[in-house]
Design a protein around this nucleic acid. Structure first.
Lengths: 133, 133
DNA sequence: CGGAATCCCCCACGATACTG
DNA sequence: CAGTATCGTGGGGGATTCCG
């Protein structure tokens, strides 16, 4: 952090690259923070998957939320939706290249979470123990 | 939301490392998905910062949410809280090493967001244009 | 200065039912 | 099979007031 203060310009003070990054992070976090987004994305990353398959593999999800989440992901270009005009209807969803890259770039977070899961649990116990008394 | 049966029926049926990663991702996403978490973390990563300083630099935040978010971050061990028993009181918050690592491991997401921001915007326009008619 | 307590609102999400 | 439509709820968050 801290690329040292650049003593010269005190006027253009609030141009701050770090704050831009904050906005960017919040964008992407918002995009994936829906309760079902990650689970759906995983399934769709493995290959084309049908509505009902998703309903089963993403356990606990309701039809309504499945539909809504799929629509949003499609809207953002993270999922493709393919309709086969058969009877009965058949619709397949699949992750786009962009979504796959997103999934890959989450690995840093996974590493972090695994490295610190224990420490976080301990910290919580300590905190709760203190505040309970 | 425990998937993965506990030891009993493990016919190696649904042991799926990818699904474990899903849980892990959701953990960490939940942790940072609060409306003010990222902003506070950024400020606290730069060095010790006081309550009122945060109130100013994280624009738009209310006292209540500042307090709540700080408490949660402290509980998770992402922030240290130091009270100087002076008059008037003085409290300083600072990011822990763990939080700094978290911040670093977000860089992958930042990259992704910047690479695809344009494509996402385009996708949305296309989708909205189609569904509006 | 650095909070805690209270009240209120909104919307993500759940449950249920109906349909091309 | 793959969705809509409708109603209801919980809790995340805002605004305001009080306190050591």
């Amino acid at each position: 952090m801290s690329q040292g203060n650049i003593a010269v310009t005190d006027e253009a003070t609030d141009f701050d690259p770090a704050k831009l990054a904050v906005c960017t992070v919040m964008e992407v976090v918002n995009r994936i923070s829906g309760k079902w987004v990650i689970g759906i994305l995983l399934e769709a990353t493995r290959g084309p998957v049908r509505f009902t398959e998703l309903e089963r593999s993403v356990q606990g999800i309701s039809r309504r939320m499945l539909t809504l989440t799929l629509r949003n992901l499609e809207r953002d270009g993270l999922l493709t939706r393919t309709v086969y005009p058969t009877v009965p209807p058949r619709v397949e969803y699949e992750a786009t290249e962009m979504a796959r890259e997103l999934y890959d770039s989450l690995s840093g977070l996974v590493d972090w979470a695994e490295r610190h899961r224990e420490a976080i649990a301990v910290s919580r116990q300590g905190y709760d123990g203190r505040t309970a008394c």
